[in-house]
Design a protein around this nucleic acid. Structure first.
Lengths: 227, 227
DNA sequence: TGGAGTACCTACAGCCATGTCAGTAGTCGA
DNA sequence: TCGACTACTGACATGGCTGTAGGTACTCCA
């Protein structure tokens, strides 16, 4: 009845490490930090737990690797979300939020921060790169519209604001929803992101009316100014 | 040499529970969730670990109590920060950030969210109350200045934005600093809060010039408008 | 002042997660 | 096809953490 599953499946070391990390990430994301147990991860991967130790030397080694992989994965995701072909601000926020929330990156990052297992600052300063990208785009748009480009520092702060807010929201969105008295969390969070997108565009003289008012309108169509 | 420390110190049950929770909170705040061990907490309190079990029945019981106490403590802190006698926006942000960061409430809350040990929604919707308070103040200020009061929904969103951002910053500020390429984290975070305060005041037509520009000025003196 | 109640203790039991060891079985090159 | 290499395994050792049992001492009240 049961298919003759090969008793052993042999992977390359890299494959094995990757599978194990993925399983560990899943465990961490939806079970909290205490759920990262070698035996469970091993079961998820269909291997014996000493194999994990073989590849990562110790549980601590696995956790460090996990933190590193989380950081780089997050970097990649963020950069991809921004480098993507000219989406609206709201779309960017949605995409970042999804990445952070659904793939558990926010949790990974939070856990990383909480346990002080942060990788040695050898990762690229991705938020700075991100701010650079945003600045370039805003400067181009401003030039096209005959306005002055926003100051660099404000852009940096805004990026940080969005990063912190999206992280906080991805991580503790449901708590915030409860504290706000909102029953339907997801919908409210979406409207919140729409609103934030509008405010950001207004903040940088980029919105449909270039005024400070944006309200909770559906995502403003900023492409109109260019077409 | 060693002072004749009383071998046993007898507390009321409430005192004991309180001490234990405080110690547990400290452990959690600066050691991560895996650092909440009965034996360590007991040592911190100068008691034997079965005493903790006597008061909380099990480790899980302690954790649940911890989550509850964290939620109410955070509520209290937030409300106190806002109910306080008319501080500037920047001061409020600083105070909330401190509460969140230094007393480890952000970490407690994050852990609560991560392990899905959230207390049953019986806590007051403190963010809603907070938004109410902010709305009252803004309405009064607007009336005094002969302006229209900001819409309720925008205030709610702004409160949520600030909450998420302050949580994210308190929890993962150093990570954000590294990703932004800022070496001196604390100073940058402070300037960031100043900037955010300015933007918020501008956003609600409340700043010194009521314009969208606020930059990184030192906290605007909005009391001038009233004196 | 004696007894009930309970905060607190020491000692111990059991469990479970990490880590070790010695061996097995795929893979690859000579 | 042989040998080296290594991914992988089952069985076991170990340590530490939670939880139990039974006793001790403090407090309060009749």
């Amino acid at each position: 009845m049961k298919a003759p599953v090969p008793v052993r499946r042999r992977r390359t070391a890299e494959e094995a490490r990757h599978e194990i990390l993925a399983a560990a990430q899943r465990r961490l994301a939806d079970g909290g930090p205490e759920a990262v147990r070698l035996q469970d991860i091993a079961r998820d991967c269909g291997i014996a737990h000493p194999t994990i130790l073989h590849h990562f030397h110790s549980r601590e080694g696995l956790l460090v690797a996990l933190a590193r992989s989380a950081a780089t994965a997050l970097n990649d995701d963020i950069l991809r979300a921004v480098t993507a072909p000219q989406p609206g601000t709201a779309a960017v926020l949605d995409r970042i939020f999804e990445t952070l929330g659904e793939s558990g990156h926010a949790r990974l990052l939070a856990w990383t921060a909480m346990t002080a297992r942060a990788p040695r600052g050898d990762e690229p300063a991705s938020l700075r790169l991100l701010a650079d990208a945003v600045q370039r785009r805003l400067a181009a748009d401003a030039a096209a519209a005959g306005r002055a480009a926003p100051a660099r520092e404000r852009i940096g702060f805004a990026v940080r604001l969005v990063a912190a807010a999206m992280l906080g929201d991805a991580l503790m969105g449901d708590v915030l929803n409860r504290l706000s008295g909102h029953a339907d969390g997801a919908a409210h969070q979406r409207r919140f992101r729409r609103w934030l997108a509008g405010e950001l565009e207004a903040m940088f003289g980029h919105g449909p009316e270039a005024g400070p008012r944006a309200g909770a309108r559906p995502a403003p169509r900023r492409r109109a100014r260019k077409g």
